[in-house]
Every structure is written in structure tokens, then in C-alpha cells.
């Protein structure tokens, strides 16, 4: 029975399909994580400005994204936009938009809180030593902020990778869905396939997130010296 289960993995196109699913998962994750980091940093810096209008706009945006489940956002973007204004996005594009909106909001808040948590003294003593604003940020503020951002940002990135499994609800077939398709297709002939397929998916997810964890640990160790 056991070897029947593992055979499903190598039956026909199954293995390739699972890897193609992984490609979809990784493509979506990488595009949106990189974009979220860039836009999130921008938003975080905007949020540290004490402009009341920017404050309200970013705050409402952040709370809105936080309150809305990602699933709802995906539905609104994919189906809602079509119904409301006739914009017909592909499922993948809709997923990219939602994940960037979500990632940017969360990343923006991380960047904001990291900058705010750096004591005023650090800015003042830097200024008193003659550093220009640019030098102050480059040599003193940014390096310290980055150290605080890295661990929660890695956490966010991992969460984003895991959450990509939701996009199946707007028709994007990624790794987990492919796995379920394979399992269900063999439900009556090889019930133990589920174990093997989920095991494989577990390892593929693990090895997708692992480099991020390694990177985070490496940086933390380097800074912990």
C-alpha cells in the first residue's frame, strides 16, 4: 500500500505538475514580497512624517487591509472589480495586486515602528557630531532600523508564502491545489497517496521558506557579535 502511494507522485505528469504548482507559488511570492518591501519602506517613511493627512490616509489603509481577510480582498479584486466596473483581471494579476496591497501595508507598519523606536537621542547625537541628514540616515538610523525590521519582515514573507494557497479561490492553481487534485484523482485507487503528496508539499514549502530563515539567522548572528 505504501509504495502504491509514493508511485502516485511519479505517475504520469504528477511530479512535473507539482513542480509547476511550486513555480506558481514562488513566482507569486517573490514578485509580491520584493514589491512589498520596496513600497512598504516608502510607506513606512511616509508614516513617520508628522503630516496629518498622510497619517489618516495610511492609517485607514492599514486598518482596512488588516480587518479584511485576504480571502475577501481576493474576491473583491477578482470578482468585485468585474462586477462593479467591468475590469476583468486574470486571477494571477488579481492575486499579485492583493498580496502587494497586503504586504505593503504590513511592511509599512513594520518600517514605521522600527523608525519610531529609534530613540531621539540617536538623531540628536548624530546631528551634534556634524552628520548631514543623509549621512545620519545612512550610517546611524537605517542600519539600526533594519536590524529591527528583519525578523518581523521574514515572518511576514513566510506568512505571505503560506497564504498563497488561498489564491486557488480565484482560480489560480498553485502547489497545494495541484497536490489536492492529485490526491483526489487517486482517492479510490491509492488512498495512502495523500500522505506522500502532503509530505512532498511540506518539504517544498519548507525549502521555500528555509532560505529566508537562514538569511535572518545569519544577519542576526552577524549583528549580535
Amino acid at each position: 500500500m505504501q509504495d502504491l502511494g509514493i508511485r502516485v507522485l511519479f505517475d504520469g505528469e504528477n511530479g512535473v505538475r507539482l513542480l509547476l504548482g511550486l513555480v506558481v507559488t514562488l513566482k507569486l511570492s517573490i514578485i509580491t514580497i520584493i514589491a512589498s518591501c520596496l513600497l512598504g519602506t516608502l510607506m513606512g517613511l511616509l508614516m513617520t512624517l508628522r503630516n496629518p493627512i498622510i497619517h489618516i490616509v495610511t492609517r485607514v489603509y492599514l486598518e482596512f487591509i488588516r480587518i479584511m481577510p485576504q480571502l475577501v480582498l481576493l474576491f473583491v479584486t477578482y470578482f468585485g472589480l468585474t462586477r462593479a466596473v467591468g475590469i476583468n483581471l486574470s486571477g494571477f494579476t488579481a492575486a499579485v495586486i492583493v498580496f502587494i496591497l497586503w504586504g505593503t501595508a504590513e511592511m509599512g507598519d513594520l518600517v514605521r515602528s522600527a523608525f519610531i523606536s529609534i530613540p531621539k537621542d540617536q538623531y540628536e547625537s548624530g546631528t551634534a557630531l556634524g552628520f548631514s541628514k543623509l549621512q545620519l540616515y545612512r550610517f546611524i538610523i537605517l542600519p539600526q532600523a533594519l536590524r529591527q525590521i528583519i525578523p518581523p519582515a521574514m515572518n511576514l514573507a513566510t506568512r505571505m508564502i503560506m497564504t498563497t494557497s488561498l489564491v486557488v479561490l480565484i482560480g489560480v492553481v498553485e502547489m497545494l491545489k495541484t497536490g489536492q487534485q492529485i490526491i483526489e484523482a487517486n482517492r479510490y485507487t491509492a488512498p495512502s497517496a495523500a500522505l506522500w503528496i502532503y509530505g512532498t508539499i511540506f518539504f517544498l514549502y519548507f525549502f521555500s521558506c528555509w532560505p529566508l530563515t537562514i538569511l535572518a539567522q545569519h544577519l542576526e548572528k552577524k549583528w549580535e557579535k
Binding site: V8, D11, G12, E13, N14, R17, V173, K177, Q180, Q181, I182, I183, E184, A185, N186, R187, Y188
Partner: peptide, 17 residues
């Protein structure tokens, strides 16, 4: 459906069945 055998699923060759 792509994962509700035997009503709608995808076979090992990636074909809907």
C-alpha cells in the same frame, strides 16, 4: 471541479476527467 473524483478531477496526465 478539479479535485472531486469521480465527478470532476485531473488525471495523472493533467487532463480533466
Amino acid at each position: 471541479f478539479s479535485d472531486k473524483a469521480p465527478f470532476g478531477y485531473i488525471d495523472q496526465n493533467g487532463e480533466y476527467q
